[in-house]
Design a protein around this nucleic acid. Structure first.
Lengths: 336, 336
DNA sequence: CTGTTAGCGCGTTCAT
DNA sequence: ATGAACGCGCTAACAG
């Protein structure tokens, strides 16, 4: 049925070793034989079986991509970047949604190892001890994305979450706001903590009061933004601006504002994060902190490939990509 | 380094055949030996190497997922459904973005075959002859999603695109609209054609004029909707309503309306398609045709697994999932 | 430069 | 019920 290296060898009247050598250029072969082999290979449409190859070489051209949830736009754009880069290099992505559940993450990690993936890109809520442990033990090339993982010895790529959040808050302060709420993610997330710190520092540096009751730590989705918004807007004492942890949260918050009879940005300024496509098209267009998502993906893949190819010589990299404030319509200057 | 079946056999003082038999329950083994084996398996934490297994069994527990682009929300939700179901059953998804490019599709198809994927879920613009050819030749289990592929012998799952589009147009007609534009996808897409037919039939059945200059066949994204909108709204002779091929197109169209000084739904009613989360949160909330995306994904996976497990006995299935019109704020009744 | 041979790790006959 | 031996398709020593 399927044509094997043996069939090629027989028809070309050479040994299987020779066929293997011309196909992999692993050792010199005389031009005549090479031609004979290639001819038969073309005729038969021979394709080396990658599984058999993996069994020996311990390399599969497979990359594991561990993420919380693809249906999140930010993540799917990130994945798209990874996949694009991997494809260019002959690798394929194994998609693993974990919901940030530690058990599922570990389960997948183990599965990926057994499938001999050549490397793993990890996008997780925080670099968990179990994960660190896993990669210390198994030495599988890995990139931690969206983390700035100082202590550990693993490569990582991220924006500067602290600074980005600081900049967002400062931007609002620059607009004249003195009461700024913060709609962030769960406080177990390393990312959340960094951004929260940036936010607080910006307030502190500019003499703006920090108010714990204006911090809502729900999740990254629309509903979280909406619920936080409805809760906040029902109070008498409202802030004039809100920093959101994602554009989706911002959209939920804007929705909540309208449902509470508040105008954005007339009554309350709302700032997003990520700059997904919808941010520039929604009403109002959302002022946001742009992350180079797609590039985060391609760069992750590139780093991982460098690591895979560099083997032992590879030196850990820690890349920080620039963020940028995109001014649009959802935040206005306070002219008291 | 890695523990193999041989290590287990040695420590348990049995043959590797016995170990294999208890692990796969392929043949009866005496209780005593079974216990001995399991004990050693646990102690060593032995995991059979799936690659070696694949080489013999020709099954990999890998499923190829061929899609145009994950970063499209509709698609990423679909993929999420697939992945969730596969995970429950011990399978893993290989993600393949093709941009609907026939060459890339074929390239991936061939790659997947060589990796011995157990099956493939295909979400493509149209069931192309090359694809039909491929699956006739290689007999790999496959599900065509978002296609109602009558002629072919392959299983498929979809909503009724024709009827859904018909219903959308009729809904608008029921609201009193008599001039309805259609923002659809590329006419090479089978899906586009079906929906276009449904739209035209609805107009015909209700005595509404069809106007070719009100049909814009761009793409499924925000920009397409925006560009079509800007072009249409610049004209003197405008329709009172628009049927869009996706919620993203609707969002672009709404944006274009506002940029053209038009209110939605006061000046123009705009209807979406898909009902992605953003549809219910954007301003105005988008009236749309709901597709059960996530279920489309899980059902696709289930069908594929049935096919894989049923082998020869499996009979082709063609499932049509229900759609539903979700009334929200972007369409209004015309009170002339 | 080329061919022969021994595995990679596992499932499965074929004898016992 | 159990074990020895073979082979899945390929790469990499090892001879020549």
């Amino acid at each position: 049925m399927t044509v094997t290296i043996r069939d090629v060898a027989r028809l070309a009247e050479v040994s299987i070793a020779t066929v293997s050598r011309v196909l992999n250029r692993s050792k010199p072969v005389s031009p005549e034989l090479e031609e004979k082999v290639m001819k038969v290979v073309d005729e038969l449409g021979f394709n080396p079986n990658p599984v058999a190859r993996t069994l020996i070489m311990k390399e599969s051209l497979l990359i594991g991509v561990l993420i919380p949830d693809v249906s999140n736009t930010f993540i799917s754009m990130f994945v798209r970047g990874i996949e694009e880069e991997l494809f260019q290099n002959g690798y394929t992505a194994l998609l693993c949604n974990t919901n940030s559940d530690t058990k599922i993450e570990l389960h997948y990690l183990d599965l990926l190892r057994k499938k001999y993936v050549d490397g793993i890109v990890l996008l997780t809520s925080a670099p968990k001890p179990e994960q660190i442990q896993f990669f210390k033990k198994h030495k599988i090339p890995v990139i931690f994305s969206s983390h700035t993982d100082k202590d550990s010895r693993f490569s990582c790529i991220n924006i500067d979450d602290y600074q980005a959040s600081y900049d967002a808050a400062r931007y609002l302060i620059g607009l004249g706001h003195r009461s700024i709420a913060f709609f962030c993610g769960p406080m177990e997330y390393y990312q959340t903590i960094r951004r929260f710190d940036g936010y607080k520092q910006a307030l502190a540096d500019h003499g703006v009061d920090y108010r714990a009751e204006w911090v809502f730590d729900k999740d990254y989705d629309i509903d979280s933004g909406y619920n936080s918004g409805m809760e906040l807007f029902a109070r008498e004492d409202r802030p004039t601006a809100i920093c959101c942890v994602s554009d989706m949260v911002a959209i939920g918050a804007i929705r909540a504002a309208e449902d509470s009879g508040l105008g954005v940005p007339e009554d309350v300024s709302i700032m997003g994060f990520d700059d997904i496509p919808i941010a520039g098209a929604s009403r109002p267009r959302i002022t946001t902190v742009r992350q180079p998502v797609y590039e985060l993906g391609t760069r992750s893949a590139q780093m991982l490939l460098r690591q895979i190819r560099g083997k032992e010589q590879y030196k850990r990299e820690a890349i920080v990509l620039p963020h940028e404030i995109i001014e649009r319509e959802s935040c206005r200057a306070l002219t008291t």
